[in-house]
Amino acid sequence: MSTYVLVPGAGSDSAHWNRVRPLLEARGHEVITPDLPAADPEAGLGAYVDTIVEAIGDRSGVILVAQSMAGLSAPVAATRADVALLVLVAAMIPAPGETGGQWWAATGQPEAQRAADLAAGRDPDAPFDPVVTFLHDLPPDVLDEVLAAPPIDQSDRPFADPWPLAAWPDVPTRVLVCRDDRLFPLAFQRRVTRERLGITPDEMEGGHLPALAHPGALVEWLERYREST
Rank of each mutant, 00 (worst) to 15 (best):
F159V: 03
S155W: 11
A115W: 04
T200G: 07
R174D: 13
D180Y: 04
L36T: 02
E145M: 09
L212Y: 08
P151G: 13
G11M: 10
E220P: 12
R114Y: 04
E25R: 11
G206K: 06
G71Y: 00
E227M: 00
T133N: 12
P210H: 05
A74S: 12
L165G: 10
G206R: 06
V49N: 07
P215T: 05
V89C: 09
F188Y: 15
V146S: 02
S2H: 08
Q67Y: 06
P169M: 02
F188E: 07
V87D: 01
P151I: 08
S68H: 09
F188L: 09
L118F: 03
G207V: 10
Q154H: 15
A105T: 15
P34A: 10
V142K: 06
L165N: 12
D125G: 13
L45S: 10
A10G: 15
A91P: 14
L86E: 01
T200F: 01
V7F: 03
I93W: 01
E205S: 14
P96H: 08
A116I: 04
A120H: 08
G108V: 09
P162E: 08
A149W: 04
I32M: 03
F184W: 06
L197W: 11
V146C: 04
H136A: 13
T3I: 12
L138I: 00
Y225W: 12
F184Y: 09
E30D: 14
P94V: 05
S155C: 09
F188A: 07
I56L: 11
L86S: 01
S14Q: 14
A77F: 00
A126V: 06
T173E: 02
V31C: 04
L197M: 10
T51Y: 04
D13V: 07
T229G: 11
V62I: 15
P96N: 07
A126S: 07
G100V: 13
D137W: 03
E205Q: 14
F159H: 11
I52E: 03
Y48R: 06
Y4F: 15
H16S: 15
R21H: 02
D58R: 14
R27M: 08
D181T: 13
S73Y: 01
L72E: 00
Y225I: 02
I152D: 10
P150F: 10
Q189I: 08
V62C: 12
A39V: 04
A187I: 05
S73I: 03
Q67A: 11
V177E: 04
P8L: 11
V177T: 15
G216Q: 10
R157P: 05
P96S: 07
Y4D: 08
W103Q: 14
I63F: 05
E205C: 09
A149G: 09
L143W: 02
A78K: 00
H16C: 10
